[in-house]
Design a protein around this nucleic acid. Structure first.
Length: 475
DNA sequence: CTATGGCACGGATT
DNA sequence: AATCCGTGCCATAG
């Protein structure tokens, strides 16, 4: 078990508290901005170089066994990675503080491993298939991805830079496109969709609307503008078929690979457009086995590990007297930030460790298996104030092993399993059931809820009333 | 007359 | 202190 509190026992200053709280509140995207800003105007802060593991592509600072690839990551054996853009790293070095004493054999049931970002996430997947000499190319491509996970520069350019033919670049791109998030590294949303479609058609024989590939190839602009009638005419299919294609795409594919989808949220039957964005936490299976331990990765938005610049510390000793006060402040601020960041990481780790153990069934088997829990009770288990849990949860999102991105607050939604059950009941009903009848069935499954509540959940799920369902069935 | 949705209240949760 | 959520009551659509 991780220690609940840091070794630190001396009283915390108010500044410390204030900063810890605000950092905890931030999503990794916000954190990224914050850190970059601090880095830019505080000379005492430094970003330590990150290195990558040959086997799994992870970027490491400390020499510890990697919970993902089970290799011992010896820094000397690692190659420096040539990333130029500042993204994130894996292991914050906890100099003098906590280290992770996990050997591969004794991984805890649900193990929390820290931070990773898109480039390293992809690199890790392709590492084994990637030829040694192609590594710089992959690194080049991955660091050139834009916010959406698309590659906006041409392969030719990359080829010219590395003095290699562009079809070798294409080979690497193809490899990247076929790793998760699928389609990453494509040159356009269109290409991304095509790649995903291809992957999907291989893995599932699930019913796909016809002409979908042609729709993407030929009618991309109509598709994105929702002109279904025109699209239908172009492809010589009915408007309804065109709409089916569109809905299939929005539920199963993602034109911007780096922003995975939340799934469509519906309220009162009104479909709200999809919201895409980056998750803050990744939950995945260890070695891909679906009943093994879960690995939780907390994204840290900056590559490398943050530390006080040793040179700055040295120079500080003979600082010119007019600068000394300023420098002292910088140094203090840097130390504070690092300490607070570490604490944020600790809190998140502890929280997620408990939370994922508790909600393991939900993570693996979906909404129906969610075990209701409140933030308050979690706070009690962790022995922290409830507002701490609140801050840690608010605004954050997690990517589940099945690829879905959900807000962390969903873990606390006590209505979720009931709603899932209602959906199931309605899906399997022979005749349209009224809310009261559904209420009765829920009661038999152990959920005592009022009739009015059933109505509310039903509309949250976007299910029409019994009457309307009946009429729909007739028509 | 029945099933459903709107509004609002009060207790729980954050 | 502010917000969320389940529920009861009542009007109304079917």
């Amino acid at each position: 078990m991780y220690p609940i509190h840091l070794l630190e026992t001396r009283p915390q200053t108010t500044a410390h508290l204030a900063q810890t709280m605000s950092l905890l509140n931030m999503t990794s995207a916000e954190l990224k901005q914050k850190i970059e800003a601090e880095l830019a105007n505080n000379p005492a802060l430094e970003l330590q170089e990150a290195r990558g593991c040959r086997t799994c592509g992870r970027l490491l600072v400390d020499s510890i066994p990697c919970p993902i690839c089970s290799q011992l990551h010896d820094p000397k054996a690692l190659e420096p990675i040539v990333f130029t853009s500042s993204r994130s790293d894996y292991y914050q070095s906890h100099s003098g503080g906590t280290t992770y004493n996990i050997s591969p054999d004794e991984l805890p049931e649900d193990n929390v491993a820290p931070e990773l970002d898109l480039p390293s996430f992809v690199l890790r997947q392709i590492a084994t298939e990637l030829a040694e000499e192609d590594r710089p190319i992959a690194a080049h491509i991955l660091t050139s991805l834009d916010e959406d996970g698309l590659l906006r520069i041409s392969p030719l350019e990359i080829g010219r830079y590395h003095h290699i033919p562009s079809d070798r670049v294409h080979k690497v791109i193809k490899l990247i496109q076929h790793s998760e998030p699928f389609g990453v590294g494509s040159s356009s949303p269109q290409e991304a969709l095509l790649v995903q479609l291809e992957i999907l058609s291989k893995s599932q024989s699930l019913g796909m609307p016809g002409h979908i590939e042609r729709a993407i190839r030929e009618g991309m602009d109509l598709l994105s503008r929702h002109h279904y009638t025109k699209l239908g005419r172009l492809l010589d299919i009915t408007t309804q078929e065109a709409e089916e294609i569109s809905s299939f795409i929005s539920t199963n594919l993602n034109p911007y690979p780096a922003r995975s989808h939340w799934g469509s949220i519906r309220q009162g039957g009104e479909p709200i457009p999809h919201v895409y964005h980056h998750p803050d936490i990744l939950i995945s299976h260890l070695n891909g086995s679906s009943d093994g331990p879960l690995v939780i990765e907390i994204l840290f938005p900056v590559r490398g590990s943050l530390r006080v610049n040793p040179l700055f510390r040295k120079e500080f000793k003979n600082a010119p007297s007019e600068k000394i006060e300023k420098w002292r402040q910088d140094l203090e601020k840097a130390n504070l930030l690092i300490k607070c960041l570490r604490q944020r990481g600790n809190t998140m780790r502890q929280l997620l460790s408990i939370l994922t153990q508790h909600q393991r069934d939900f993570i693996l088997h979906g909404d129906k298996r969610l075990k209701p829990i409140t933030r308050a009770s979690l706070a009690q288990i962790l022995e922290v104030h409830e507002s701490t849990v609140s801050r840690a949860v608010s605004g954050k999102t997690a990517r589940l092993p099945n690829g879905r991105i959900i807000p962390l607050s969903k873990f606390f939604d006590r209505s979720l399993p009931i709603r899932a059950l209602i959906r199931e009941i309605v899906d399997n009903e022979k005749e349209a059931l009224t809310d009261s009848q559904i209420m009765g069935m829920l009661g038999k499954s152990g959920y005592e809820v009022a009739r009015r509540t059933v109505a509310k959940y039903r509309s949250m799920e976007g299910i029409l009333s019994a009457r309307t369902r009946q009429n729909m069935a007739r028509a």
